[in-house]
């Protein structure tokens, strides 16, 4: 999302200079967009991929496709879409998702999972870190696009409009993906409950 710093920065002038092969302007553009790109990359970082490598890939794509940018949307939105699709491509390339098993969970994670499945009570504040780890393991079971939507909606608490700006997907598609992801998670919790009982 473009913040105040982005609003003050003159992207149009900077882009003109970059197109004229001004290295200083290119450096300024990278520095300006780095927080936006690294925020997306960090929250959707696939396993075994360095965040700096991924950020570098996003910026290289941005520069090579700069000729396609027509200014129909703010530059940060356009770059965030490149970052999102790059993350999705990497998540998709992992192919095999690790199987989620009770046996692979730490003691605290298993306790938290048991708590959320069987009780209606709120998880203790001290177990938040374990809950976060658990969430990441569960999200790894979803399709990359569904995972991205549910993470932005339920964890980062972004609005549909914000997700639409970041990803370029329309709100109906986002709702469909969120519905599909939640249904799969619900089914997954039911299966885990059965396994625990058995």
């Amino acid at each position: 999302m473009p913040d105040n710093a982005d609003a003050l920065f003159d992207f149009v002038r900077c882009l003109e200079q970059v197109r004229a092969h001004d290295q200083q302007a290119a450096r300024e553009l990278v520095e300006q967009l780095y927080p936006l790109v690294i925020r997306i990359v960090r929250s959707h970082l696939p396993r075994r991929v360095s965040e700096e490598d991924l950020a570098q890939e996003v910026f290289m794509k941005m520069f090579t496709r700069l000729g396609q940018y027509q200014g129909a949307m703010p530059l940060p939105h356009w770059v965030s879409r490149i970052a999102v699709t790059t993350c999705i491509d990497h998540l998709r390339a992992q192919k095999r998702r690790p199987e989620f098993r009770w046996a692979d969970l730490s003691e605290t994670e298993a306790e938290v999972l048991d708590n959320v499945i069987t009780n209606e009570n709120i998880v203790a504040a001290s177990d938040s870190l374990a809950a976060r780890e658990l969430v990441h393991k569960l999200l790894a079971q979803l399709k990359p696009e569904d995972r991205m939507v549910i993470q932005m909606l339920d964890l980062e608490q972004k609005t549909l409009a914000e997700i639409s700006d970041l990803t370029g997907w329309n709100t109906t598609l986002i709702k469909v993906r969120a519905f599909r992801a939640r249904r799969k998670l619900q089914k997954f919790f039911q299966e885990l409950q059965k396994k625990e009982r058995s």
């Binding site: 998880v123 809950a131 980062e156 608490q157």
Partner: peptide, 17 residues
Amino acid sequence: STAWTRLAEAARRTRFE
């Protein structure tokens, strides 16, 4: 409240960097 919403709520309590 579902298991997922409870878990997500707990995960949100850890401040994302």
